[in-house]
Amino acid sequence: MNDDYVVETRHLAKDAGGRQILKDVSLRATPGTVVGLLGKNGAGKSTLFDVLLGFATPTAGEARVFGEASSRLSAGCKARIGFVAQQDELMSLMTGEQHLALAASFHRQWDHALIQRLAREWEVPLNRRVGVLSGGERQKIATLLALGHRPDLLVMDEPASGLDPVARRAFMLTLLEIAAETGRTILFSSHIVSDIERIASHVWILREGGIAWQGELDQLKESTVRLVLRAEHEILSPRLSRARSTARCGAARRCWWCATGILIACRRSNGSRAHAWK
């Protein structure tokens, strides 16, 4: 294992409830990278984060964060990590302010100015009880809690899933801004491909518990072909069928979403776009 990596796993496997959730996962992230984790529901994204951060122990293999074994992270190492869970684990009786004050009391350094600025920009009602807030607002508070101590590694499990498009864009821009700080690493999972396209420098694709693809985003884009065709009628017209068979025989084959299929985009006669998957 190399201590230069912020996150590193080797042949990681995790079984739960008689089912293999992760199998032979070997990954690494260097300082300063923004990694987007893609995968279908049940692919093992949340479990991977759980094992990486030591919430769950691996069945086989090894996971290290800042060179320390995930299952035995020291207090110093923990202080360098921020985590946003998929479903926020806030106490519904407390206000956002009370949550922030309690979280700040655990850390020697807490960036009050950053939190106040972000709360203002994201329009988070900090003085109201969390129980009466919407899902998106709760998610924003959970993110603020993870950012206050300026972590070197920020892990977020679908952080923008509850946000509206405008809030999501602002949120992603802030993430980009945070990622721009030297040496900070961000791992985040998402179903929204455009979010990953917008800020990720690297992509990990999980499929049925295993790693289907990992590497730089640009590299992934280069290995993907997107055919734009003009179809007169429906998607499955003879011309499109021919295009599909051509694509199958051609040089570029992989859809970077599912990592195995071929994405064919065509334009109908009325100008609307349609996509077909092989």
């Binding site: 951060l53 207090a75 923990k78 869970a85 684990e89 655990f106 850390h107």
Partner: peptide
């Protein structure tokens, strides 16, 4: 309730 959050496990001590 306070200590049930997973994020709390990552706060030092």
């Amino acid at each position: 309730m306070l200590c049930a959050s997973r994020a709390l496990l990552l706060r030092p001590h």
